[in-house]
Computed example of a mutant assay.
Amino acid sequence: MLRERERRGVAPTGPRAGGTTTARALQPAASDDPNERIRQLEARVAELEASERKLATERDILRKAAKYFAGETNW
């Protein structure tokens, strides 16, 4: 994953302390070329959209599991 980010020109986020990252760590590496900056930002947007899809899928699975187990209890 780190190599993929380096290939795209996105700065590595580094180790996470408590599962959070700073806003500065999430920004692409600085570039003087506007086209390069756009390419970096588009790559970051694609990465965030993929992460959003994964989280939405995980959320839906958890909701279905909670519904299943709530219906299975005999309290």
Rank of each mutant, 00 (worst) to 15 (best):
S31A: 15
I61S: 02
I38R: 15
T22L: 06
R5C: 09
R39Q: 12
W75K: 00
G71L: 07
G19R: 05
T13N: 01
E4Q: 11
E72V: 08
D60Q: 15
R3H: 10
A23F: 01
P15M: 02
T73M: 08
A43C: 07
Q40T: 09
T22M: 03
E6C: 06
N35W: 11
A23V: 10
S51I: 07
A43D: 14
G18K: 02
T13E: 09
T21M: 09
P12V: 07
Q40A: 12
A66Q: 10
K64T: 11
R5P: 03
P12S: 03
M1Q: 03
L26N: 04
E58D: 09
G19F: 11
T21A: 13
A46V: 02
E6V: 10
F69N: 03
R3T: 05
T13S: 10
E4D: 09
Y68P: 00
L26P: 01
T21E: 09
A30M: 13
P28L: 04
L2C: 02
V10T: 07
I38Y: 12
A46D: 14
I61A: 11
W75L: 05
R16E: 08
G14N: 00
A66K: 04
Q40S: 07
P28Y: 03
T13D: 08
V45M: 12
R37F: 12
R3Y: 04
S51Q: 14
E52N: 02
S31I: 03
V10A: 06
S51W: 05
E6R: 13
A56Y: 04
V10R: 06
E47Y: 05
E72W: 10
I38G: 04
R39W: 09
G9D: 05
K64V: 09
R44Y: 05
P28S: 08
P15I: 03
A65C: 05
E4Y: 06
I38S: 11
R53V: 12
R5V: 01
L41S: 12
G14Q: 03
V10W: 06
I38Q: 13
L41E: 15
S51R: 10
P15C: 01
E4F: 06
E4S: 08
G14R: 00
T13A: 06
K64N: 10
R53N: 09
T20Q: 11
M1L: 05
E72L: 15
R7H: 07
A17M: 03
L55W: 14
L41Y: 12
K54G: 02
A50P: 01
